[in-house]
Design a protein around this nucleic acid. Structure first.
Lengths: 184, 184
DNA sequence: GAGTAGTGCGTACAAACGTACACACTCCCT
DNA sequence: AGGGAGTGTGTACGTTTGTACGCACTACTC
């Protein structure tokens, strides 16, 4: 009575849909994201989306939640691996400059998420948790005010890279991060 | 033959539509922006939009262009008014923290613009000019690398404020800006 | 093997969308 | 005063949208 006797045929289905949603949002933006495009990208029938999710808004919200989860873990792991503050500065610089951490598509998605969060309370909460976790990860190595400043640098330079489409000067980034860390 | 003999009844019409478009984008995001909502907000008939603009995309592009123009002038004027580097640091801090410069709605719009620029070449160009002009304004007072860093701080903290919905610690911002300016 | 509860999907539909366009209106020229 | 070019709008149309829902299918119980 309590447990369902039957098991889903494809338990990865939901996740595959969310991944497809992120891919569509990367390419077309939230404004160009539809049930049909997501379904095509995921290789599932249209009805499958309305079966697994209440609405398109729900899909978008959960997709962004998944994105934030993944990115936060990444940040955390990168900063935990740094033995001291000097290494932490280098790690932050990698986070900002490194294309292997955040692909251009990821940067696009982050922009979409923060923009969308201004119009959706659930995603706004995801954004706040994202910031809180970034802050906590930075706090492993830096004093409180420096965390806020470095976090702003990460976000700001991510935007710049997405807009300008060219890599940052790594030495300049490292020098800035180091200076900010030393200021507090 | 060359000049049009007749003058538009309402020469401010186009601008009023663009302002309405920005208002709608602030409230509903680009994904919730439609001809009909803009027309209602501007108090003009639906047909007026298709008469003055080729398409919805054109309206959005020109609206963002207008936004960038306005904001850039603001930045420029604020930084030109600063007599020395010390005052410039304070001016930048005001730009970041001051609600009188950029309202919460403005911050939302900036996010929308950068997100949209990843999917629209015309707006991408607007974004690049925005960055270039910010950079030029900062260059009145700061060395080149510091400009890039301070600009990233402005963008990043703008996002943070929009997400967290609470004002920044002004002293901390000023200390960071000063430290970055001194680092180069 | 028949019954059945739950999974999953193809299709249909009303609403909302972007856009086109026929038509009024205004005002200058002759 | 009459003609006509240009301004501006109301409405209608084809398309796409989000979503609902009836129905097939599966796999387990008895």
């Amino acid at each position: 009575m309590a447990g369902s006797r039957r098991v889903a045929n494809d338990p990865l289905r939901k996740q595959r849909i969310l991944d497809a949603a992120l891919a569509v949002m990367t390419e077309h933006g939230v404004h160009g994201t539809t049930h049909r495009r997501i379904a095509e990208r995921a290789g599932v029938p249209l009805g499958s989306l309305t079966y697994h999710f209440d609405s398109l808004q729900t899909i978008i919200e959960q997709a962004f939640e998944h994105l934030a989860e993944t990115m936060s873990h990444h940040y955390r792991a990168t900063l935990e691996a740094a033995p001291d503050r000097r290494a932490a500065c280098a790690a932050v610089t990698d986070l900002i400059c490194g294309a292997e951490y955040a692909t251009p598509g990821d940067l696009t998605l982050i922009n979409e998420m923060f923009a969308y969060s201004n119009h959706d309370e659930a995603v706004a909460e995801v954004g706040r948790r994202w910031l809180a976790r970034s802050h906590a990860s930075l706090a492993l190595h830096f004093p409180e005010p420096a965390c806020r400043a470095i976090d702003a640098l990460i976000e700001g330079w991510s935007i710049h890279q997405a807009v300008e489409q060219k890599p940052l000067d790594r030495a300049m980034v490292l020098a800035t991060v180091t200076a900010v860390a030393a200021a507090f």
